[in-house]
């Protein structure tokens, strides 16, 4: 049994008093590759923001193992594509954790950027303005930024949206390489369940609470998917307040002996 990279203890995250992730407990193993699946509004992106620390818990805790650097790739729609930046400017943002606001970018940093661009198949794209990139090229550039961040824990929020099949194949190969060859811990929000079955060893099925968590093929069984479909996205402004000690049916899902 290996150590936990991220531990959730009775974690509730949400907005305006409504939970988006409800009483989640469990742990993400170090060196594991986990797909986070679930309907729109089921709390996947919220969970990512909670792990990064961009959203404070309403109750409970979310702990990232000490000393683990985190790289987070938000959904693409949050980036200003019209901003006058080149690919190298976008990718070099990934140097921030090492160089910060004022640290000078060194020769080794430039090599790291060149290597990252080569790894994602964007060699020679350094000087291209980002508004001239296709959707797939943009996503490759963002993966290069994740590479430059050189983090032990990698969180990717819907990285395969509106990306063509070849790019998905290349990016999935890169993700598996990060996990299996480099021992990084990777969490990926994915909608394509076949992709999860084919490539992801583990999955967390969210429907605000954890419906199931563990071996991907077990998690994506018909019973669990049916349970997840019962989930309604809507907030209820008349819902009773959630009291401590309240029994949350299924909140502590099975998760394959992670902890």
């Amino acid at each position: 049994m290996s150590a936990a990279a991220v531990t959730f203890s009775d974690l509730t995250l949400g907005y305006n008093g409504h939970p988006a992730v409800h009483h989640l407990s469990g742990a993400v193993r170090k060196g594991s590759l986990t797909a986070v699946v679930g309907a729109n509004g089921s709390g996947k992106s919220t969970l990512m923001k909670g792990i990064v620390g961009m959203l404070a818990p309403m109750t409970g805790r979310c702990t990232v193992a000490s000393g683990m650097r985190t790289a987070y790739l938000p959904q693409q729609s949050e980036i200003d594509r019209s901003f006058p930046a080149r690919v190298v400017d976008l990718v070099s943002l990934g140097l921030w954790p090492r160089r910060g606001l004022l640290g000078r970018h060194r020769g080794e940093d430039r090599h790291a950027i060149a290597r990252a661009l080569m790894a994602v198949g964007l060699e020679g794209f350094e000087g291209r303005p980002i508004d001239s990139l296709s959707g797939g090229q943009m996503q490759r550039a963002l993966f290069a930024r994740v590479l430059v961040q050189d983090a032990e824990l990698i969180l990717l929020d819907e990285p395969f949206n509106a990306v063509d099949a070849k790019t998905v194949t290349d990016l999935v190969a890169l993700i598996k390489h990060w996990q299996s060859d480099q021992g990084r811990t990777v969490l990926v929000v994915v909608h394509d369940l076949d992709l999860v079955r084919d490539h992801f060893p583990e999955a967390l099925l969210l429907a605000r609470r954890a419906v199931a968590w563990g071996d991907a093929r077990d998690v994506l069984g018909a019973g669990n998917l049916f349970k997840a479909r019962q989930f309604t996205e809507a907030w209820d402004d008349t819902a009773p307040w959630c009291e401590p000690g309240h029994e949350h049916a299924g909140a502590h899902a099975e998760h394959g002996g992670h902890v």
Binding site: T70, P74, E78, I79, F83, L90, L93, L101, L102
Partner: peptide, 23 residues
């Protein structure tokens, strides 16, 4: 000059900046 990197990052990808820095 001092805040250049933060200003550029805050324009280009504010969510990314929030994930790596409190600036």
């Amino acid at each position: 000059v001092v805040f250049w990197r933060a200003l550029v990052a805050e324009c280009l990808d504010p969510v990314f900046l929030r994930s790596v820095s409190k600036l």
